[in-house]
């Protein structure tokens, strides 16, 4: 027997669950799927099939780092695209403020300004990153990727990887 009282209880508990979930996903950690091949082979090493939603990697994004914005070289981060605020990208930080970086396909080096960082995908042939839009402000970063959670055979921690080239001193 469905009564208004029952509806009220369901509404109240779903509201509470929503509040707690939103708070945890903002403050502690959340899970996001990775689409595309710009971070291959770290994420999505194989060609996607029609069942993209189930074979795409799902990663754990921790938000504790957003309280003091301390990142280091090689961290994989989620950030808002500077050209469209609705898009989120996952890339690897390769240079921090004060570093000099040599821009690929040209011979000049640029200094990363204060409060910015240089992000690059692990797959240099197929990645939209700082090589096309330049250094991004640290304020656009929305979290740091720490673990792969799905698919089950690829569960594991993501280690910091240092870029082989590009960094100039």
């Amino acid at each position: 027997m469905v009564t208004p009282n029952f509806f009220w209880t369901v509404c109240k508990s779903s509201f509470t669950v929503g509040l707690i979930g939103l708070t945890i996903s903002d403050r502690v950690a959340s899970i996001v799927p990775v689409r595309g091949f710009s971070m291959s082979p770290t994420f999505n090493p194989h060609e996607s099939t029609s069942l993209g939603l189930f074979t795409d990697d799902h990663v754990l994004v921790e938000k504790r780092c957003l309280t003091d914005y301390k990142f280091s070289h090689g961290d994989v981060v989620v950030f808002c695209s500077p050209s469209s605020y609705k898009e989120k990208h996952i890339k690897r930080i390769t240079a921090m403020p004060g570093d000099w970086i040599s821009v690929p396909y040209s011979y000049d080096t640029v200094k990363i300004p204060e409060g910015h960082c240089w992000v690059e995908g692990d797959n240099p042939t197929n990645s939209m990153d700082s090589r096309s839009f330049g250094p991004i402000p640290l304020g656009l970063i929305r979290g740091r990727v720490t673990h792969i959670l799905w698919p089950p055979q690829r569960v594991g921690k993501i280690d910091r990887k240092f870029p082989q080239s590009g960094l100039a001193f």
């Binding site: 003091d68 914005y69 204060e114 409060g115 402000p137 970063i141």
Partner: peptide, 19 residues
């Protein structure tokens, strides 16, 4: 929602210091 426009006073994270 993308509803801010010219003339609005907004709070912005400084691009030079994200804190």
């Amino acid at each position: 929602l993308g509803k801010v426009g010219p003339g609005d006073v907004v709070l912005i994270q400084s691009p030079e210091n994200p804190r």
